[in-house]
Design a protein around this nucleic acid. Sequence first.
DNA 1: CTAAAGGTGACAAAAATTGACACTATAAAA
DNA 2: TTTTATAGTGTCAATTTTTGTCACCTTTAG
Lengths: 239, 239
Amino acid sequence: MNVRQRQDAIARSLRRNGTSTVAALAQEVGASKRTVLRDISALRDEGFVIHSEAGRGGGLQLDPQSIQTTARLSVSEVFALLISVASMRAAGGIPFSGLADVALAKIEKALPSDKVRDLRRFLDCLYIGELALQVDISNMGTMEPELLPAFETAFLQRQHLRFQYRDAKGVVTQREVEPQAMLILPPLWYLVAWDPAREDFRHFRMDRISTPELVEGVTFRRRHVPFGDHVSPVRNLSR
Amino acid sequence: MNVRQRQDAIARSLRRNGTSTVAALAQEVGASKRTVLRDISALRDEGFVIHSEAGRGGGLQLDPQSIQTTARLSVSEVFALLISVASMRAAGGIPFSGLADVALAKIEKALPSDKVRDLRRFLDCLYIGELALQVDISNMGTMEPELLPAFETAFLQRQHLRFQYRDAKGVVTQREVEPQAMLILPPLWYLVAWDPAREDFRHFRMDRISTPELVEGVTFRRRHVPFGDHVSPVRNLSR
DNA sequence: CTAAAGGTGACAAAAATTGACACTATAAAA
DNA sequence: TTTTATAGTGTCAATTTTTGTCACCTTTAG
């Protein structure tokens, strides 16, 4: 087994099991504890956030948000991604476009600088029209990229999500809901959720949601979201 | 210098100089010819297309289209890219969405499989509406990803582009134009080009363009594209 | 205090990389 | 035809990097 492969195996094991100890990892990958510790150090250098605790009952824990992936992309592929993100932003943006920008910045950084210049010049030749003119961009909502993990976890772990919501009239309420779907009607995004207190579905404009937090321990089941059924997703939405 | 760093240096040198010889590269990176040959072999294994010719006057040549870049992305960033591309496709797609798909497939492949499953499940919670309903997707044009390099070069090198164009009435003409801009009005893309034969700007729907090829040796200058001026980009476009 | 955990430093053993050299093949020039 | 300049392969010893062992330190729970 390669050095790289072994480090990947360690990262994978940590991801899968949540926590582990150096000794257990050493046995798993067939290397000494010293080598595993060196690998952990290398992974940390590469940006993995690995918490560790000394003492009895301690161990290693990988921060899932720090999981990184390396992909080898051709210039054309990078370009296609650039266009997608640029078009999306011109069409009104997405709440998480900041993250996409970061991703693209990283990709660009990895490209040779002359290629980046070429791409930029090509992008200058792009005019993305009409859609950007139809909608009021100044009114477009944005979300802090830091909020994404909370939403992602709420969907995947089926945990309740608690947040403040300011409706079209400016009235602020506290909500605790079961996230069922995301509805994208550029430039606006809506969280479609079951509101147990009201025993009904509600649409929440994402940019009117603030301080979302996961409710630990409370899970729910997926419901059939009645799109196009008796609840129209397009009508009754505040834009 | 690291093995990886040296291989990167070799790839960069080939990119910069177009062609080179093993001996020259060996001197440049301070290694033996044997080692450079081994590195070349490794680069080829990784997907770089490096043409070589034996004999006097021969040498190595890197296919610029095979230039690859590695970027380290967090899961959230991958997710943001996924959403961008998915939304773009729902909004009518882009001519090069195939390339974006390939790029994302590569990124996904690099992610651990459990994370991919999570992302897929999250994407299932996305409903991208309205735009997709407004436009006739069946009428949407697509372009072969292989055509992108020709367009990119035409823009960057300011070379004439020759292609067949089938207009709204089905009449096919042969064109040779100066590409000036791309106009994106989802779901359709237009090439805005100066047509020297007609001494005027013309808009070409990208999906009605076929067999584009670069005209070697003929370059042109950038013109001021009269958007929103006396030529409206939105009117007079066949949709 | 003890046991179980993470972490560091030093050094020899093991493994991978590298260079030297001999060799083959090819293409252009002399 | 011979020479020269190039790519490419195989082998093996020298060099460099990686790994394991061991001694030792710190932290924490019981």
